[in-house]
């Protein structure tokens, strides 16, 4: 067994393991955002590693270039897609997990008019006062 073959099989195994982890996370996790968190990163890295294994296996310039293109494309688009899906699901009103600790957007987003409002006057005044106190 050559070094390239060992690297290749390690990449394949780690990639498949990460994808399996992502799938388990998708079934086991309690709400949509946590599921998104589980699948986006693990599955993206997993399939990127498997494509990298293809590049190691063939080793010619064309294949390596194409594999790099696939990996870069995956790494760029996966976060964008996940962000858009999470945003749409928030607007759609998909319920959060009942043990969610904080919903920072909740007090600023108006579900009826689809508008964001800035922090309240008192909050802003409190932040300002804290800043002034820090400077002194």
């Amino acid at each position: 067994m050559s070094v390239a073959e060992i690297i290749e099989s390690v990449l394949l195994l780690v990639g498949a393991g990460l994808i399996l982890l992502a799938a388990i996370g998708v079934v086991r996790m309690p709400d949509l955002l946590i599921r998104l968190h589980a699948t986006t990163k693990a599955a993206t890295l997993g399939s990127a590693l498997m494509v990298a294994a293809v590049a190691v296996h063939f080793g010619s310039v064309q294949v390596v270039t194409r594999a790099i293109a696939v990996i870069v494309f995956l790494l760029i688009t996966a976060p964008v897609a996940a962000h858009m899906l999470a945003r749409a699901s928030y607007f759609l009103g998909v319920p959060l997990w009942r043990r969610t600790v904080i919903d920072e957007l909740g007090s600023h987003y108006d579900r009826e008019t689809h508008e964001l409002t800035a922090a309240e006057e008192e909050e802003l005044a409190a932040i300002e006062a804290a800043l002034v106190r820090d400077r002194q």
Partner: peptide, 26 residues
């Protein structure tokens, strides 16, 4: 339970498809 969940599952299935294609190519 919701539509975005299903889209998420499709997303994951396509990722697995990419992995299977890579494995098959090797």
């Amino acid at each position: 339970p919701s539509l975005p969940d299903r889209v998420l599952a499709l997303d994951l299935i396509t990722m697995i498809g990419i992995g299977i294609i890579a494995l098959y190519a090797i």
